[in-house]
Design a protein around this nucleic acid. Sequence first.
RNA 1: GGUCUGUUCAUCUAAGGGUUAGGAUUCAAGAUUUUCAUUCUUGCCAUAGGGGUUCGAAUCCCCUACAGACUACCA
Length: 509
Amino acid sequence: MNERKVRVRFAPSPTGPLHIGGVRTALFNYLFAKKHGGDFLLRIEDTDQTRYVPGAEEYIQEALEWCGINVDEGPKQGGPFGPYRQSERKALYNQYADQLIESGHAYYAFDTPEELDEARTSAEGKGATFTYNALSRGSMKNSLSLPEKEWKGLLNSPVHYVIRFKMPDNSDVTEVDLIRGSVTFNTSLLDDKVLFKSDGMPTYHLANVVDDHLMEITHVIRGEEWLPSMPLHVLLYRAFGWQGTMPRFTHLPLILKPEGKGKLSKRDGDKMGFPVFPLLWRDPVTGEPSRGYREDGYFADAFINMLALLGWNPGTEQEIFSLNELSEAFSLDRVGKAGARFDPEKTKWFNHQYFVKKSDKELGELFLPVLINKGIETDLQVAIKVAGIVKERCNFVSDLWDQSYYLFQSPATYDEKIIIKRWKDGVPEIMNEIAGFFESVGSWKGPEIKEPFSAYVTAKGWNFGTVMNSLRLCLVGGSFGPDIFEICEIIGKEETISRIRKAVETIKI
RNA sequence: GGUCUGUUCAUCUAAGGGUUAGGAUUCAAGAUUUUCAUUCUUGCCAUAGGGGUUCGAAUCCCCUACAGACUACCA
């Protein structure tokens, strides 16, 4: 068993966009596979036709692609164990259900949904919970309680039936979870789960076990919400006689709301203004959009990096990891047991780290379309230059404009507070003189403006700080921005002078 | 209600019986940048509570509290 090639799968249900918790499950599966030189498969679990959402499968594919999570086998990529969509494997499951019936591990049940509801509500009335199990199945309508003639007749009639797992009475099932250790369940608390639905489709439980076996999956890494069904799955492997190749199980902790209680939901994102989906999603029915990390300006590598550190840590102080580095460093035993609260602030911090690491050229190329879109006439060289000087103060490409708009347009207003602070008596005159001085400056390069300027200000006996700050007010309309002379260089000599003259005319105390 | 899982600074987490309980994010202060941001330094802040076991417990055991997941012919 140990020498089997590692094969893991991400098995989402196409009922909507992939939530970041799902992306993290996919990521951990992927990292585990890559770490061990194994395969990462994508399997679409669409056994519930009623919950099918158009576009969801495509969304999942696209989200994984954006993240750089490469699928080795899947519906789109193909592979030797296909098809990878359970609806296309429909014909396969019958024989396995039959096999369990024949071996006495499963049985036919004819109870209608209404009858089951009734059993549940009546049990509730007595303060109990109805469980379809060894204690109750004798009084229900199934092939165990009914005379053979009767249930065989029912089988051949148009009456709908399901196939249920015959849960053993009162025996302990113990199985190891790779991050939690050994977990024990008693079967008397478990119910006779439906394996095969009356619509001819298997349920998740049957399909997942059959497919994992057929696809030679070695490790099942999934969300914590599946932990309670682990004993059923283990029992199914045993019933099929597949215990020799049964995968190892691992249940990942949940991602929790940033504040308050419970697991992270779409609502939290809407409320606090951060995305919970990797990509923008538009609900096919209502048309309502949900924000995505990609569209909000996050870099895929920063997003992935953040997700990886949510619940996992390398045991060192390294925080910045490329996908390849993650694949190297990843191990399941360094995944925490407790749910992790999601922190949108730290996500921004990660993006900032990746942002400033990018070259000015890369940033300039991303910035140029933004500028053009704003109606600014400029070129790549300027975009690169500007991106380079303001990138330290940005988290996103969109911040670039907020931090540099004054380089492209003359200030429309001047900050009142700064006017009061800097626009003292005599300042307008000094500014006029400086405008005149700038006329005489020959070479218009940052450092080459600064030197004669300093000499000039010193010779005049002006206070350097006052002059600089007032000049800044004239040029950008407030007290912010990079080095004054950098600004002068970028906006050009004429614009510099004209902004000073305009400010002197406009600003009134 | 029942079953299972979990609980270290506000947040993500390290420390797998012996450290002043470490790092990162956020926040605050200082330095530097004669602006803002960056950067640097510093600060604030934690073992849920109670019992054991032990020379010694965040770490092992029990109880309590709290939290979460599950409890469908959904996955």
